[in-house]
Nucleic acid binder design. Structure first.
Lengths: 95, 95
DNA sequence: TACCATGTTATCATATACGATAACATAATT
DNA sequence: AATTATGTTATCGTATATGATAACATGGTA
């Protein structure tokens, strides 16, 4: 059935689809955002600059900025090194 | 003081040093081993072959074997994809 | 013995994570 | 206004993660 209502429906469906896509994308990226949030929070609470954290990790401040920006897919080792430099341990649970 | 006892001590110290190194190394790699253990356990419990898991993830069985061997440093996205293919979510906590 | 299922190891190509440096933006402080 | 501190963005080179294929080992089963 082709109608304005039908058109509207497909539009809504498209929106829902996009929303699903969004949800799926978000679900995929959730672990990344979650761990980054915790890193930023820990660093902020401890009043440490990106530069200081970078020094402890053994890298550059730009790399910490890049990590915190969430624009790439970090390795487990790197996350672990950063966490340890903040006096924390990365604990991963499959649930 | 140089003596046989001294020699022994330095030997023991070396062993302890090595043990420290080992401990440090282990601590560094702990998150990796931990998550891999959980992946292997989940896959085994669910009676899924590496090949089937690879298919779900969208990769090859050799890559799953490589992951489970713990011989390299996986990315967060890859770990997340594998976990999701096992019906689980990667949950990271900085503690 | 000859499959067959499962997992391992090696290897290559490609994509990308990461180290590193520099330039820039902005806000706070002197 | 001129520093200074902090964070961001761009870029390049190198190391390595990952996709992909193939060969191999091993254990179970017909």
């Amino acid at each position: 059935m082709v109608s304005k209502a039908g058109a509207k429906f497909s539009e809504v469906k498209d929106l829902l689809m996009k929303d699903e896509e969004f949800k799926t994308e978000y679900e995929k990226l959730k672990p990344r955002y979650d761990v980054i949030s915790q890193i930023i929070e820990a660093r902020t609470i401890q009043n440490i600059t990106q530069e200081e954290l970078a020094f402890r990790v053994g890298t550059q401040k730009s790399n910490i900025s890049r990590l915190e920006s969430g624009t790439y897919n970090p390795s487990l080792d790197f996350l672990s090194k950063v966490a340890r430099s903040l006096g924390k341990e990365v604990q991963i649970t499959l649930k």
